[in-house]
Amino acid sequence: MPRPRCERCQRPLDHCLCPLIPSLASRTRIVLLQHPSETAHALNTARLAALGLNNAELRVGEVFDGLDELLATPGYRAALLFPGDQAQVLTAYTEVDDQPLLLIVPDGTWRKARKLLYLNPMLAALPRVTLGAVAPSRYRLRKAPEAGALSTLEAVVEALNVLEQPVSFDALLKPFDALIEGQIKAMGAETFQRNHGPS
């Protein structure tokens, strides 16, 4: 019989993260577009980001209807958080930035994220933004495919910390850290060291 789950954070009730999830306001609107294969992932960090930010939403799919309306949300300028040759490094809002970003964040492996862009040409056509220098990922359960690779939640936190400085969005990382600690505890310190410790 499956373990009862929290309706909100989707974690087993005995590991519910809701008490750690903040409720943060942001000028930036975050829209997380999640590939369906990510929904069952134990560390569904896009969901944590959507739950912790008042001005965020999570959509799941491969082809997204209503993108034209979404991208034309009044009061925002849309941009895609995704690396590329033309991507601009994010910088803090200035006094003259009267229009904050509607930041579209694809959630999935790099291959799945590229597929989302391919299947949704309106996304691929958006101006791209990327993060500058970032701290190493706290995601100690997964070998990063390259230096600077972050989980979706970490990327959102980094982006907001840059855009809306001096405001800090680090509180979003509390449930993420607890989730990782819980996973490490469940696998046992020895297994963790063998599989994920320094090589």
Results as ranks from 00 to 15, higher is better:
132 G>R: 04
140 R>G: 03
16 C>F: 00
92 A>I: 06
28 T>D: 05
168 S>N: 05
69 E>Q: 13
68 D>V: 15
124 A>H: 07
136 P>M: 10
12 P>N: 06
107 D>H: 03
156 V>H: 09
61 G>F: 04
101 L>G: 07
1 M>H: 08
15 H>R: 14
89 V>I: 12
71 L>Y: 10
196 H>P: 09
58 L>F: 05
152 T>N: 10
84 G>Y: 02
52 G>H: 00
33 L>F: 09
198 P>Y: 08
7 E>M: 13
52 G>M: 07
32 L>R: 05
4 P>A: 01
55 N>Y: 07
127 P>K: 11
77 R>T: 13
87 A>D: 08
8 R>L: 12
148 G>Q: 15
22 P>A: 14
162 V>W: 02
104 I>W: 00
63 V>K: 06
21 I>L: 08
100 P>Y: 09
98 D>P: 15
58 L>V: 06
95 E>G: 12
24 L>Y: 13
77 R>N: 11
2 P>N: 15
187 M>K: 04
179 L>M: 13
165 Q>S: 10
4 P>I: 11
66 G>D: 03
91 T>L: 11
69 E>W: 11
107 D>M: 00
129 V>A: 09
192 F>S: 01
73 T>L: 13
102 L>H: 02
118 Y>L: 10
135 A>V: 05
59 R>Q: 12
172 L>F: 07
187 M>S: 05
169 F>D: 00
81 L>Q: 01
15 H>E: 15
76 Y>M: 14
160 L>Y: 03
2 P>Y: 12
25 A>H: 13
33 L>P: 15
168 S>M: 11
174 K>S: 07
129 V>G: 09
35 H>F: 02
148 G>A: 08
104 I>Y: 00
181 E>P: 02
129 V>T: 15
80 L>N: 03
50 A>H: 12
